[in-house]
Design a protein around this nucleic acid. Structure first.
Lengths: 207, 207
DNA sequence: GTCAGTTGTAAGCAGACGCTGACAACCGGA
DNA sequence: TCCGGTTGTCAGCGTCTGCTTACAACTGAC
């Protein structure tokens, strides 16, 4: 049987030299890998094995640090896409979000794409649902303040319609690969969307 | 061991009376169940066991009829959501699609929701990709014809932006459960969207 | 009746999944 | 030097997945 007793350094082909003992670096690697993969493939489409491999970290460490997949997801996503919200005047939230969305290549995983990955994760898991509701509320609130109406329900409706558009654009770019949306100049796309949302959020002329 | 020799009809508690031999009825049941579940949970979120159970059909029959899950998906989805495209004047495609989307309850699975389920299925499988591209082209083409521009690329871009909006609205309603979008009167929502898309698809005033 | 073909059923395979347990290697303080 | 706690590694568990196989029950043609 030759029980393969442990040798300090076998002369063989470099049997995976152990990674340096750095807990926080491991954590960061895992979080970064998780963000990229969740943004690219959604919650269900991402496996913990893939995250660990991309991070160059043993799979078991993932569970030691985050407990389970859902908590890793929540921690990777939380507070990540909200920077763009408070990064300038509120009336330009829409433009800034669009710029962040369109600036990156199709496979790149910028901050804002994470937001949409969260929305896109269609699992019924509690963590995913919580994150989605949280992000939706933040964006919805910021957008609702821009609506020219007295009716709060109508303001929320129009804000959600705007959010739906952002969501759909991200989806058409990342999941479907719309040639038109990917080839167009960002300024052109932003111009179209801003023009239309001005009509959407502005006062209704004929009652 | 008592090898449990087959008995024609055991006196016990009705051990699953075999379903009547009707091939086409079985097929239809499977297709109907597949449509409902794919629309509700997407491609990856739906298991063949769930489809078979909902159809009241043995799981193995699913594979006898359709070969594999992807073919069942393709067959269930193909040509299903396109009715609304040719069901009236082309300039009202947007309104008709919205009406179909908003008319049903959140859990109902009308025709049009299937279209969005196809888009939402985020798997990389070939069948899902084909169906998505197919549907996107049909809708995109119909919408592009309505754009007031001479530039074909710009027309396609604006059509895809419109499609993105429809997609996002469906997503916000079905995946996230936006209270505002679900509680609002369909006519209100349609009014907002049509007003904004008029600005989007219409001529650009200031170059 | 017999027998080939069709329809339904039961059981299980191979692989991927999330997750766990046991153990080795290293570190800091006593 | 010992020793508890932390970090990294390895192997595998239980379950679910899409899919297959072997077989029973029924049908229609001869």
């Amino acid at each position: 049987m030759t029980p393969e007793q442990p040798r300090p350094d076998p002369g063989g082909p470099a049997a995976a030299p152990p990674r340096p003992r750095d807990s926080s670096a491991t954590r960061r690697s895992l979080l970064a890998a998780a963000r990229e993969l969740f943004a690219a493939d959604g919650y269900d489409g991402t496996t913990v094995r893939a995250i660990a491999e991309r991070a160059g970290v043993n799979q078991a460490l993932l569970f030691r640090h985050f407990g389970n997949k859902e908590q890793l997801f929540a921690e990777a996503v939380a507070g990540q896409a909200l920077d763009v919200l408070h990064d300038g005047p509120p009336q330009e939230v829409l433009r800034r979000t669009l710029e962040a969305m369109l600036a990156t290549g199709p496979d790149d995983s910028a901050e804002s794409t994470l937001f949409f990955a969260a929305l896109r994760s269609q699992g019924n898991t509690e963590a995913a649902r919580t994150v989605r509701a949280q992000l939706r509320e933040a964006y919805g609130g910021a957008l609702a303040a821009l609506v020219a109406t007295d009716d709060p329900a109508d303001a929320e409706l129009r804000a959600d319609l705007t959010l739906a558009w952002l969501l759909g654009i991200a989806l058409l770019r990342r999941v479907i690969h719309s040639d038109a949306l990917m080839a167009a100049e960002p300024e052109t796309v932003i111009g179209h969307v801003v023009r239309a949302t001005d009509a959407l959020l502005g006062p209704v002329d004929s009652p």
